[in-house]
């Protein structure tokens, strides 16, 4: 899959509490959660994001409490893809299972600046930021399959149907 959009940047060790404060954990709709993303640290963030935009983060993105509301809200906001120097593994897993593509690339994460354009090819692992080109590990085919279906829910439904058909 290929994504193109404007870049938004956040730093190292961005934790899930910063993404979505604990008091919103009773919300379940992605569009509702999305309204509160980065509310405490950057109240204007939600308004600046256009559908399709790309988030670039430092290391250990999504650390702290394992909280599905965080990737759910980022996706609900319309962000198409996240590139980070590294991800907390719970966040990594939750993002994929909710159908939010993410790539790890330290060089791209360090180079990206707010307002630049990015073009990301998840199948080849090529990340273009304005005119600079970076290469990283592509998402493994199995994970691309989950992402392309929009997340694990659709993937499971398809798998259940496949199993029924072959039974």
């Amino acid at each position: 899959m290929i994504f193109e959009g404007n870049i938004h940047v956040v730093g190292d060790h961005c934790d899930t509490d910063v993404m979505i404060p604990g008091r919103y954990l009773s919300l379940v709709e992605p569009c509702e959660i999305a309204k509160h993303i980065f509310e405490e640290v950057d109240p204007g963030f939600v308004k600046r994001v256009q559908p399709g935009d790309i988030l670039v983060a430092g290391k250990n993105f999504g650390s702290g409490s394992g909280r599905e509301h965080a990737p759910f809200g980022l996706k609900g906001l319309g962000l198409s893809c996240i590139v980070a120097a590294s991800f907390s593994r719970t966040f990594y897993r939750m993002a994929i299972d909710l159908g939010l593509p993410i790539l790890t690339c330290e060089a791209a994460a360090r180079a990206a600046k707010v307002g630049q354009r990015a073009r990301i090819d998840t199948a080849s692992g090529e990340i273009r930021i304005d005119r600079q080109v970076f290469r990283t590990q592509p998402m493994p085919p199995f994970i691309q399959e989950i992402i392309e279906q929009g997340g694990l829910t659709a993937w499971v439904k398809a798998e259940v149907a496949r199993r029924r058909a072959s039974a």
Partner: peptide, 14 residues
């Protein structure tokens, strides 16, 4: 290992 909550549901399904 800790797992996504959608992932836990998938385990219960499949």
């Amino acid at each position: 290992t800790g797992m996504s909550w959608a992932g836990m549901a998938a385990i219960m399904m499949l």
